[in-house]
Amino acid sequence: MRLTINGRQVEADVDVRTSLLDLLRDHLGLPGTKKGCNQGACGACTVLADGERINSCLALAVQYDGREVTTIEGVGAPGALHPLQRAFVEHDGFQCGYCTPGQICSAIGMAAELERGLPSYVTGDLDAETIELTHDELRERMSGNLCRCGAYNGIVDAIRETFGQIAEDAGKREAA
């Protein structure tokens, strides 16, 4: 199978049982994506597949033949961090750092969903043109990513600082 990971073409020959998560961690030397439960309950393994956030532990690697996957290693590196990564450091949006790559990939995917106008469980008006990134919208949409250290306040602050303008920008585009 052949897939694009962080912009690089990768060839892999793995067991059909191998999850995308294990492919990344055990076979491709990309351990930035974390294993916290291996059953889709914690979100530590979140990556972006063709721009959408998925739990890589619930994805079979072979399903991703020919597709594009972005992991935390492709988001930004020390010295060239993504603005969201910098905001996580500034707002102390982590302690142990283990759920962090998943939180960051998930937040990037979430921002894209919001920009596309996808509603969530707490969205009041399902037909709204734009959805504001309120405190509840953000928390609801990020609730699939557990943080046992309890860095939630810092995570929310970092995401709001980085993506807080999205709803407004989308609204402005509509107006223009």
Binding site: R25, P31, G32, T33, K34, K35, T71, I72, E73, V75, G76, A77, P78, G79, L81, Q85, R86, F88, V89, E90, D92, F94, G97, Y98, T100, P101, I104
Partner: peptide
């Protein structure tokens, strides 16, 4: 800010299974 922060947010901090 945490001195190991950049490593952690970039997924470069190495844990036991890595």
């Amino acid at each position: 800010s945490r001195i190991d922060g950049p490593l952690k947010v970039a997924g470069q901090a190495r844990f036991a299974a890595e």
